[in-house]
Computed example of a mutant assay.
Amino acid sequence: MTEISVQGNMHYVDGQALHALLQEEVKGAFFDLDLNSIQKMVEANPWVERVDIHRIWPDRLVVNVDEELPVARWGDKQLVNSVGRIFTPQQAQLDELAGLPRLYGPDDQVQEAMRYFSTLSQQLRPLQMKISDLILEKRGAWTVDVIVADQPLRILLGREDLRERLYRFSTIYTAALKDRISQIEQIDVRHTNGVAVRWKQPAST
């Protein structure tokens, strides 16, 4: 009988359940085992990013599992890793990761969204802004929701001259808007010069 060893640093993959599944499904003579079939079985778990399987004489099968590392949520029902691969975990696991930033956009633009998310995160860090939502519209325009000084803020970036627009936003925000952030709902930087500010409505008394 083949001895099976499941290895890897796993948090969301249930190693014991995977081991039990393999014990149940792996049949036949040791050197007749179909490793490709076993690999596909393990990779059916959405949390498995990569699996390496090899035989060790005389009767041991070693299964090394690399688990997905989610970077953000993709829409409301999925997750995405650092290279832009989308995967769909169970709802309870999604709920556990509710604090991750959320990215929205067409599925065929997920890698572009991940690249800009990484770039924008670095650009906003000096302003002490953390991205909560990043939206890529079908026509290519970007909208980003951030948290700054415990306040939500929406920034409309559009689709052109993103580097120049973000520089202009950073300059104006630092010089004139930073101390009034609690009063601001949205900043639109899609204009040729300056920005447009939408102020929060005062609470009714």
Rank of each mutant, 00 (worst) to 15 (best):
E24T: 01
V63G: 00
S121G: 12
A17N: 01
V48Y: 02
T192D: 08
I131W: 13
N36L: 06
E49G: 00
N64D: 10
Q122C: 01
L177W: 11
H11T: 03
Q123H: 13
V148G: 09
L97F: 07
L156R: 15
Y12A: 05
E112N: 15
L136W: 10
E112M: 13
Q128L: 11
Y173L: 10
L166P: 04
V26A: 00
A20N: 02
E96Q: 14
R190E: 03
L79A: 05
V63L: 00
L22K: 02
Q16A: 08
G75S: 09
K138M: 09
R50V: 00
D107Q: 14
Q123G: 02
Y104L: 03
L21D: 11
A149I: 03
D133C: 04
D95N: 15
M129H: 12
L127H: 06
L69R: 11
R168H: 11
P152G: 14
R165V: 11
G15N: 03
R102F: 01
V195H: 05
M114N: 06
R73L: 12
M1N: 07
G75Q: 06
A196N: 06
Q111P: 02
Q39D: 03
L79R: 08
V189I: 06
H54S: 01
Q201I: 07
L156S: 08
I187M: 10
V51W: 00
M1P: 01
D32L: 06
G194N: 10
M129E: 12
S132D: 11
V144H: 07
Q91D: 06
Y104M: 12
R159L: 12
Q91P: 05
S204F: 14
I147W: 10
P106Y: 08
Q7K: 13
K200V: 02
F117N: 13
L61A: 04
N36S: 05
R168D: 03
A92Q: 10
L177C: 03
